[in-house]
Design a protein around this nucleic acid. Structure first.
Lengths: 215, 215
DNA sequence: GGGGCGATGTTGACAGTGGTAACACCAGAG
DNA sequence: CTCTGGTGTTACCACTGTCAACATCGCCCC
């Protein structure tokens, strides 16, 4: 819908594109509906014919951002060229993490928007078309291939997502944002290796688990 | 400074306390300087005698939040009662992570403020008086005790911080925010165990880092 | 073709925000 | 006592999101 030019001609997509550009430049909090409208050369309030409110525009931008994130991860995934199944599966997992972080650092504004204004539903759409699904697929591969113990599979996706997301957040808007690129890259490599190692090392340490929360 | 009551009597601290309360209720983005002033029963602009701008107030709130975060982590750390040095060091690391996440979930507003508006300098003040310092101390203990290989020590603090911070963010404001508390607790346990395991499992997998070499 | 009608875009207004400037008060120093 | 500097107030500005009323344009149907 809204494919044929009316007064303006695809105002909606023009607004979204301008909004994406604004978020790129000024971050999510710098996104002003009025300024976007101004940028497109249309009066404010014109936007209200296409978006219920500011949040709706933000959601539209988030959709674009998600597409780009998936693209970045896929691009990394495609570089994995490995014969040995175990090494391949492990490399693929690392590639997902690297792509995720790569996107966060390349598009800090879009990345932040993606996770501050995300709708209620998680990424759980298909399985493989969003980073979460891709991650789950990769982890299942690791189990199939015998690298990851099936009993360690549950929860592994949360752990992997957490570590990569945390690294991204700390480096994009957190206390690590001032890191030298080389230091950052080294830390990321160390982190990804550590995760890989943690998944491969089977075994439990039951004495650590219990001991409930205080107060 | 500002200890003796003048017109109002410690307006500054009153403003900070009202701001903290506001952030608790409405989050960082709901913090309006004017509303805080109103809340204290003072005209807006009175605040400008004590804070250069809104950001200065936010920084003051962040200071309080940091104190509370440190308190939460310390409280957890104090529950560790373990004779065996290795087990004790490992438990202490887990306690830090648990306390960090506990605070994030208990005070989502303050936690988010702490990491969206944090000043340029990292937590690098003393060593032990902020979560980052405490984490480094705990990791050094793990090395001393022989659990963590010295060659794996560099970068470990970033990995640990990332995984815990990422988990907190995903659960506080991210796609995992809708998780059942029991599921969340299980995921956290799994995550902490996984990190512990990853640190303990020594050895490198060189074929992952560069590129090439069989297994 | 012409009338109408709904989708689109515009102007105007309102409340709320952060921020600046000019003024009012009040305590203590001299 | 006056004067001075810290403190708080009123008035104003630019900006934002949002609503309501009005204008315009394209398309459908008679």
């Amino acid at each position: 819908m809204t494919t044929t030019p009316y007064h303006h001609g695809n105002l909606r997509t023009a607004l979204v594109e301008a909004a994406v550009e604004t978020v790129r430049e000024r971050g999510p909090e710098g996104l002003a509906l009025r300024e976007v409208a101004r940028r497109v050369g249309v009066s404010h309030n014109a936007a209200y014919r296409h978006f219920a409110d500011r949040d709706a525009l933000v959601d539209a931008v988030a959709e674009r951002a998600m597409v780009e994130l998936v693209g970045a991860v896929h691009r990394r995934l495609d570089t994995v060229d490995e014969a040995d199944p175990v090494a391949r599966a492990r490399r693929r997992l690392v590639a997902i993490g690297a792509g995720y972080v790569e996107f966060a650092l390349a598009e800090p504004g879009l990345f932040r928007l993606l996770f501050t204004a995300y709708p209620d539903a998680p990424d759980a759409e298909g399985a493989g078309e969003d980073p979460y699904g891709m991650l789950n697929v990769a982890l299942d591969e690791l189990v199939d291939v015998g690298y990851l113990s099936p009993k360690d599979r549950p929860g592994a996706e949360v752990t992997c997502w957490s570590v990569v997301h945390g690294f991204a957040v700390l480096n994009v808007e957190g206390p690590l944002r001032g890191l030298e690129p080389s230091d950052r890259a080294a830390a990321l490599t160390s982190l990804l290796l550590s995760v890989d190692r943690g998944l491969g090392a089977s075994g439990t340490w039951p004495e650590l688990a219990p001991r409930g929360a205080p107060k």
